[in-house]
Structures are given as C-alpha cells and as structure tokens.
C-alpha cells in the first residue's frame, strides 16, 4: 500500500477550492494506492475556511499568513508528523489548475524507486492542453536555463506547482523550504542534496474562477 498525501495550498480560493476537492473525491485510483488530501489555508480572508468546515474537508488553517512556501512546507510537515505516515506527498494547487488524472503518472517514478522527486510538466509529452502565455513561457525557459547552469540538470517546467516528493524528499523539504520563489529554488536545493529529480508530463487547465492572487501569480508563472 502506497500512502499519498495531496497538499492543497489555498489563499482566498473560495471559488475554486470545493470544486478542486470534488474532482479529487471523484477520481478513482488503481489498487494499492491510498490518496488523502489536506487543504492548507494560508490565512485566507474569504470563506475558504468556512466552506471547508461545512463540507468536512480536512483543512489546516495557518494562524498567520506565511506565503506559498510556508504553506506548502506545512503540508510536508504534516505528511511527516501527522497521525499517518505518508510515502509520497504531492503538491496540488487549490485553484483547479492541476488535473488529478495525471496523479498516477506523476508518482509512478517515485513508486518504482527511479527517483525521489518528480515535477509535473506542461511542456513535455504533449499531454497538457494549457501551456501558459508566451511571456510566462519565456520567463520559465530563462529560469530553466539558470537551473541548468547551476545544477547541470535539464528541467523545463521549473515553476510547476504540481510536484511529488518521496519520503526522503519530504523529510528534507519539511526541514528546509525556500520562501521567496519556492518552486525553482527548491529544485536547486534538492539537486544539491543529491535527490534524483525527474520531469513527468501532466495535464493542466487554465484557472477556473477568480483572479490569481499576487502570491500565486508569481508562483505559477
């Protein structure tokens, strides 16, 4: 049995969070896979927390706003020290951008022991319908180039927030997780620590409702 925890960071996502959770609940996974999820509500000022409470959605509300990095790290901490030990933790945006149907593909290399961390990519395999705007793609390839310079590894969708971590990577990330631009920076950190990273094609959608917050706009470039 492989236990998987989906970490859903959410900041003012009242329009999307329940729909995202519904998609996860409806999804059917293959045998030997237990998928739980937890919403990390990063001090939202809207009804995100109230909605989760009403529907009995597991939701950790941060007593102070920490930003996306601190929120995601809370999820990793929970995967480590919560009531249940998880083998794999997956970051999954609370705004409905990520396709739960790609989950098994994303965690497959980790389950098979081929790598420690996978990045869900819009840019390989042609699986994704949504590939962001040209300007953002230019920004991403620049970041990707920088990361290749620093680590020597080619990762194309470096700002992707759809990522999976093995037990070892969970332990590391719960100790140290960058705050400012967490996605690309954490890839560099993981690489330096010798974790094996792989890019896996996944499907992503455009955001469904509500304006992207400043926080998420930066991180989902």
């Amino acid at each position: 049995m492989t236990r998987v925890l989906l970490i859903l960071p959410a900041y003012n996502e009242e329009e999307n969070i329940l729909r995202t959770v519904e998609h996860i609940k409806e999804a059917r996974f293959s045998q030997g896979l237990q998928v739980d999820y937890v919403v990390i509500n990063d001090g939202s000022r809207d009804r995100t927390e109230a909605l989760c409470r009403e529907r009995g959605v597991p939701c950790i509300t941060l007593v102070q706003n920490l930003g996306i990095g601190g929120a995601v790290q809370t999820g990793y901490l929970y995967a480590l020290m919560g009531p249940q030990a998880y083998d794999i933790a997956v970051q999954f945006d609370g705004d409905g951008q990520h396709d739960i149907g790609s989950l098994e593909n994303l965690i497959k290399p980790i389950r098979e022991g081929q790598c420690d961390f996978t990045v869900g990519s819009r840019f390989i395999g042609g699986a994704s319908g949504f590939r962001s705007t040209a300007l953002r793609r230019a920004g991403i390839s620049y970041l990707s180039f920088l990361i290749r310079l620093v680590t020597g590894q080619r990762i194309r969708d470096v700002t992707s927030g759809y990522r999976a971590a093995s037990r070892g990577a969970i332990e590391y990330l719960s100790r140290e997780y960058p705050v400012d631009y967490p996605e690309p920076e954490s890839l560099v950190c993981l690489c330096r620590q010798g974790f094996r990273i792989e890019e896996v094609p996944v499907n992503m959608f455009e955001r469904e409702g509500g304006p992207p917050s400043g926080l998420f706009a930066l991180c989902t470039i």
Binding site: L62, V63, L66, V179
Partner: peptide
Amino acid sequence: TRLTQLISIEKY
C-alpha cells in the same frame, strides 16, 4: 514560520 506551522497543525 516554524512556530506558526506547528501551532496550526496541532490546532487542526
């Protein structure tokens, strides 16, 4: 940050 995270998890 660490305190906020631990308190929030404990509270949950």
